[in-house]
Design a protein around this nucleic acid. Structure first.
Lengths: 199, 199, 199, 199
DNA sequence: CATGAATGAGGCTTCATTCAT
DNA sequence: GATGAATGAAGCCTCATTCAT
């Protein structure tokens, strides 16, 4: 029955993710989460002390997964510029496929607790890129710059560039230009961190 | 009495802006807006047909003001790279002073109407940068690239880089590194659009 | 300026009547009455101490007018049965033309005061018919019966029979069958009060 | 717990009926219904999606019950005139006992949905009488006449004749004349549909 | 452990009435 | 006398959370 319990917990998280992906946190009241998970509302509270905790866990779990992937890419051998390109493109591609993550990113503070979790998640992304940037700067591949700020810029750049296409009604853009869009974004980010010609 | 009316309308907008700046749209229920403006809840509805309309107006007004400033800067004479730097830095500096705008930007869709207004606003920002980028690309100052996507990247980059510092609790960063932060961001954006050495 | 005052009072009453006719009392908030009358909301309260008083006056005025007409018809010389038929038909025809009166009749109690006025109005109608019935019973034209109850039945009968056709969306019925409908109703009422064959 | 649920649903309906009977729909705000039912306001919405739906159900349920009774009476064997008398008297007697039904009948349109339900209910009553009238007309018991209109007249006649006595403050009349009142009404309706002597 | 009915605070909006100008 | 902005009490409805079964 530990299994059953764990299974239900996972079901709840999946259900929440699905609803948030579709319409943001506002589209995920506890009753809807419970219904989607095939459970009762009371059951949710057996697994999570509050809605905020549930949302935080969903957000954290989704981000942790992405972070893992990013870390694998950014920690691979090879020149920093290639690893950066791969990391950006991988993330952008994944965001285009499942829009929920990007939504979670730009989510309005529903709750002080959730919000601070959201900010922590953004930071985690930044940190992966920051590490990579530091390596590149140190090795001379990248221009001298504040790695933390540049990392935040990278994250912001592709989120913003993706959010438009992710917004409802732009299925077309996603389908058609997905590949090109991703390439454009990674080009932008790469140029931004590489040393410039003369100026 | 026209004066009183107009004055109260402005007071309502200011009150909304203040509350949204502090805690997002969720922190601005009509009752709170009214209390902050020193009015009754009913008075709000003499000026705005609904909460959504009020929010849209606040957002639109704030953005319109910023857009004007950006357009003046980006339309000035001189090399595109300088104008871009000025535009980015001006915007970033302003956002650091009053945090609300950035918050409004990242607001979760509360309402379909408000949300579409929010998206239109983002687009307006992008468009200003897009125009400037096109000029620079055409004149050879900037690298060949998709101007629309690059503009979105620029907007996203500095918003993200600013949101961390803007988030509650980072007063320190704002105070200390304001100037340096702004410079770092504009450097990032400039490099991103300039042609690269060899790669 | 007494005239102006009186003129505005009349305008207010007309405006109220118009709105009530269209959608019942619910469709006549003070603001709408004022706008329709071309006055300010405050002006209404110079003429009527409250909304209830305004409604009562509108109802009373409309009914008083109808009562006058009914009394003229029912007080004319000739056999009671003819006078009854004329009275019923006149009333029914007028109700079909302007639906508001019938609406006012069946109006839900908005207010205890208004409601008691409404009941008084119904009674007034009944009384006219009651008087006529008494005459007919006394002269032997009509069957022995409780004149008060029979009068109420008459009023109810044609109101109900008219309300269907008066309800929104039945323009056709009114146009086509108006004349026949009125005749059917008056036939019903007449038979009801006349003595029966043998049974 | 199914029992509790069902029990509360019934309690809500009873509470609504009670309040509407006393003062019309206006006297039955959700908060009052909840308080009368011994529940919270939120509980209402577990059983009914909106106030309009609750009102419609109350109205429909009350009417459906009455219709059943009427149909049994009007469908019994025997001469149409007796069945008509029984139907009218049964209905009138029941209305005198519980006044709410008559009130619901004459309710002002609060809501487009509720209103259309109200109209449907009126029609249902009419239809029962209409069927009975057709039989009587066909068999020669009743005079030639438009059965639909005559049925509406019958419904209106006894509603109107009952509403006076039902109105607040006329307990006396109900107590004293109940039996006689009912007989007078049914006499009126019978004469109205029977053939007349000579005219 | 699960269920889901119930709670009740809180959000948006309407509107009769007042009152400073 | 007229104006119309402001008031504030209701009204409807939602939803996170609790708790009896």
């Amino acid at each position: 029955m530990q299994e059953r319990l764990a299974g239900n917990r996972a079901r709840i998280i999946r259900a929440t993710r699905k609803l948030v992906a579709r319409g943001g946190f506002r589209a995920a009241p506890i009753a809807a989460v419970a219904a989607t998970a095939g459970l009762s509302t009371g059951a949710i509270y057996r697994h999570f002390p509050s809605k905020a905790h549930l949302f935080i866990e969903v957000l954290t779990a989704a981000v942790a997964h992405e972070i893992q992937i990013l870390q694998r890419i950014s920690g691979a051998p090879g020149p920093a510029r290639l690893r950066l390109r791969n990391a950006v493109e991988s993330f952008a591609r994944r965001a285009l496929e499942g829009r929920y993550l990007a939504y979670a990113f730009i989510a309005e503070p529903i709750d002080a607790e959730v919000d601070s979790a959201r900010i922590r998640c953004r930071s985690q992304f930044s940190e992966v890129f920051e590490l990579l940037l530091r390596e590149g700067i140190h090795s001379g591949e990248f221009a001298q710059q504040d790695a933390a700020v540049a990392a935040a810029c990278i994250v912001g750049a592709f989120i913003e560039a993706l959010v438009g296409p992710i917004a409802p009604g732009s299925e077309a853009l996603r389908a058609r230009g997905g590949q090109r869009l991703v390439a454009t974004i990674s080009g932008f980010c790469l140029r931004a961190v590489l040393p410039v010609e003369s100026a």
